[in-house]
Write a protein that binds this DNA or RNA. Sequence first.
RNA 1: GGCGGCAUAGCCAAGUGGUAAGGCAGCGGUCUGCAAAACCGCUAUUCACCAGUUCGAAUCUGGUUGCCGCCUCCA
Length: 480
Amino acid sequence: MKIKIYNTLTKQKENFETIEPQKVRMYVCGPTVYDSCHVGHARSVVVFDVIVRFLRSQGFEVIYVRNFTDIDDKIINRANELGISATELAEKYIHEFYEDMDSLNVERATMEPRATGYIREIIGVIQLLIGKNMAYPVDGDVYFSVESYPDYGKLSRRILEDMEAGARVAVDERKKNPYDFALWKTAKPGEPSWDSPWGKGRPGWHIECTAMSSGLLGETIDIHGGGKDLVFPHHENEIAQSEAAFGKQFVKYWVHNGFVNINQEKMSKSLGNFLLIRDILKAYHPEIVRLFLLSNHYRSPIDFNEKAMEEASGALDRVYTFLERVDRKFGIPSETKLSSHGELWRQFCEAMGDDFNTAQGLGILFSTVRDLNRMLDASGDQVSDQIALSVRNGYSDVLSIGSILGIFRQSPQSYFDQKRRAGLRKESIDPGWIEVKIRERTQARAAKNWAEADRIRDELLELNIILEDRSEGTVWKYND
RNA sequence: GGCGGCAUAGCCAAGUGGUAAGGCAGCGGUCUGCAAAACCGCUAUUCACCAGUUCGAAUCUGGUUGCCGCCUCCA
C-alpha cells in the first residue's frame, strides 16, 4: 500500500519511497541520559515505536537505530553535583530508560548505540570536515563553520542574517559566526575526555548523531526522527555537518513529533510540572498511557490532564470489554490468526498509511467495536455462522491493531484482574470482603429483598466497585 | 525582531476541493427487579472572522483576530 509521510524538510506530505525497496533505514534521536524520562520522552519513543511496528506490518524490513547521548555538559554537571562519574550517571539513567520504556511496552530498537562508543567515528567526521575547510580548530575546540555550508537553515527555514538580529546567542569571539557550533570540546581538568588530534576532549552535542547514523545506516538514510524541539538547532546542525562531510543528502524524510503539555502548560523545569513516566505509571495502566499518547495525531500537541487520562481509560475498557465478551461467547481462540485480515484492519492501515494517523485509526477501531457489539446484541443466544465469522475476524483485527499500537496485549481477564488488584490496593480493601458482600447481595436478590441488594451495591459503589449481574453470576469491576 | 504551527459541537479529536469519523459527557429509549455492560435515537445547515478562486471550500488564496511553539538545554 501507499504510505504518505509529512516531511519537515519540504513541509508537505510526500509519498514514502525508500532508498532500497522494502527496506527502511531509520534513526531517531534518543535521550541525553542525565535525568529520568518524562511524558514527553514517552510520546516520542512511543510514536516512533508505533511507526516502526506499522512499517514492519506493511512488509518493510526496518533497521531502527535509537541512540543514547551519554556524554555532554548536562551529564558532566549533574555527575559533579552528585559526586559520581559521568559514566555512572549515564548508566543509571540508561537503566531507568529501559525500565520505563519496557513498562510502556516499547520494543527495543534494532541498534541502540551510545555516543561514547563512537568517539573514533566522531573524530573521523570532524577530520573530514576540517579537511574540507568547513570546520576549524581553536584552542583545542573544533567548530563547524555554518557559512561554509550554503544550505544552512533549510530544515528550520532560517536565514543566518535574519537570525542574528534579535538572537540570544552567547558571543564567542573565537567563532567566525555566532551560529558556528562545537564539534569537539577541549576537556577541562577532571572532565571525562578522549584523545584527539586537537588534544584531550569530548564531542560536541550534534556530531554523535551524524557519526552513529552514518556509521550504522549509511550516509543517506530514509527517516530521521525526534521531537519538534530538535528541529533547530540539533537537526539543522546534523544536516549541515553530515552533508558537508559526505557530500550527499543526509536524510530523505524528517519526522518530528509534537509536545506534551500538562494542563495546558508547556512542561518545563522552571514551572516544576515535569511528569515522570514512572510516576504516571503509578496512577495509570501502561496501556492507558500509550492509548492516550496515540489519541492525537503525532504532530499535534497533546494535553496531559486527568480528564484525558480518564477518557483513555474508558476507551481501553470499552475494547477490553468487547474482547471479554467475545471470549465468553466463543471461548478464547486457541490461536489468534493474525495473518488473515479483514475490513477493519484494512481501514486501520489506510489511516496509518496517511502520515501515521493513529487518531483516525482509533476512530475506525471504536466504530467497528460498536458494529460488532450490535451484531452480538441482535443475535442473542443464536449466533449465526456468518455473524460468528464477522465477530471472529473483527476480534482478530482488533488484536492486530493492538500489536501495532502496543495495546490489547493482555487477556481481558488479566486486564480486568489487574485493575481489580490496583483498586483493592488503592481502597485498601480485602477481596474476600467483597466476595462476602456479593454473596449477601445475591441472597437478598434471591429473596427479592431489593432494598438490601441495592444498599449493598451502593456501599460497594462508594469504593468505586461496580457490580455487573450477568446470567452466570455477579462480577465486579474497579472503576479508576 | 525572525521562523513555524493551530483555531471543527459542552469537552477531546479525525477530516486538505464534493457536501461534517470516533470518543467522553448529556437527554430519550431497548435490555434489567433496579442497575452495570451493550445497543438504538437525539445533540455542529456548520468548521474563529472577513473577502476571493471554484459548479462546489472546514479543506485553496489574501487579510483580520486569538492561542501556542521554536530562535538558549529540551522529546
